[in-house]
Each structure stands twice: as C-alpha cells, then as structure tokens.
C-alpha cells in the first residue's frame, strides 16, 4: 500500500488496542482481569487501567494509547450514571471510541444504556467468544 502526506490514516487496525477499567470505588476486579486475558488470548492489546479510574483518566489513556475501544466493568449498580457519563466524556474529547460495559447489569437497564450510546452490554456469565465478538463488532461498527 502507499500513503502520501495527504492520505487518510484510518486503515483497519490489525491489532486492536482496548482500554479496560473500572470507574469509581468498587473493587471487584475479577471480571475485568478475566476479560483482559480473554482479549489478550484473542490477539488484542489490552491497556489495563484497573481500579478506581475517573472518566478523565480514561479519556487521557484513550488519547495517548490511541485505543480502539473502552471496556468498563460495573458491579455497583452505578452503570446507569457512569455508562452514559463515559460515553459523553469521550465524545466531548472528540474521540469516536465505542464503550462496552460488562458486569452486573440487569436486562431492563440495557435499552437505556444503548440509548445513551453504549456500544455493547455483556451480562454476567457472558462466554469468552461473546466478549471477543462484542468488542470486535463495536470497533467494526465505528470504523465502518
């Protein structure tokens, strides 16, 4: 392929880079760590931020790491406030990066999260293949 100084730079990424984090004080990181390994084993690069992140620390990481997606794990019933807040913070920073939420999210809340712009919601016990597919689909949707 060729590229000159005026060509668009958004080729399809061969190796997805995913930022994984937990927002707020909740310390349940078992799921986040398992997902980190699932994505690594699917060939992705996981930028693991871990516990106690804020929307602004995640935005900074997404910018600097040029991440393709953000994965958040929620166990404290804060998803309805924090999920949309994350989507908004990324949009405000001019970042077109999809947000995938996993953890404990009751089915009845899923439509609300999708409405707020969350790209995918993974329920408790989602199998590895579903996790990987959801992330790939979320990224593909954006780059399409």
């Amino acid at each position: 392929m060729s590229a000159d100084s005026n060509s668009a730079t958004d080729e399809a990424p061969e190796r997805l880079r995913i930022v994984l984090a937990k927002l707020g004080l909740d310390g349940h990181d078992r799921g986040l760590k398992v997902v980190a390994r699932i994505l690594r084993d699917a060939g992705m690069e996981v930028i693991f931020l871990g516990l106690r992140q804020t929307t602004s620390s995640i935005v900074a990481a997404v910018e600097q790491e040029d991440a393709d997606a953000v994965g958040l794990s929620m166990h404290n019933a804060g998803h309805l406030t924090l999920g949309p807040k994350m989507v908004q913070a990324l949009a405000d920073a001019g970042l077109d990066v999809p947000v995938v939420i996993g953890g404990i999210v009751p089915a009845e809340d899923e439509p609300l999260l999708y409405q707020a712009g969350v790209a995918a919601v993974l329920g408790p016990g989602a199998p590895a293949t579903e996790v990987v597919e959801a992330v790939r689909a979320a990224v593909a949707q954006r780059t399409a």
Binding site: G24, L25, R52
Partner: peptide, 20 residues
C-alpha cells in the same frame, strides 16, 4: 463504599455511592 475507602460523603469519589 466511600466509608470503606476512607472518603467522606462530600468527596468527588463518593458521588452516587453514598448510603448505597
């Protein structure tokens, strides 16, 4: 959660977690 982590209810970390 804020009490368990050593933060007061008026801390920015406590938002949405107070008394939950």
């Amino acid at each position: 959660m804020p009490t368990l982590m050593g933060y007061d209810s008026d801390s920015e970390w406590a938002e949405g977690e107070v008394g939950r």
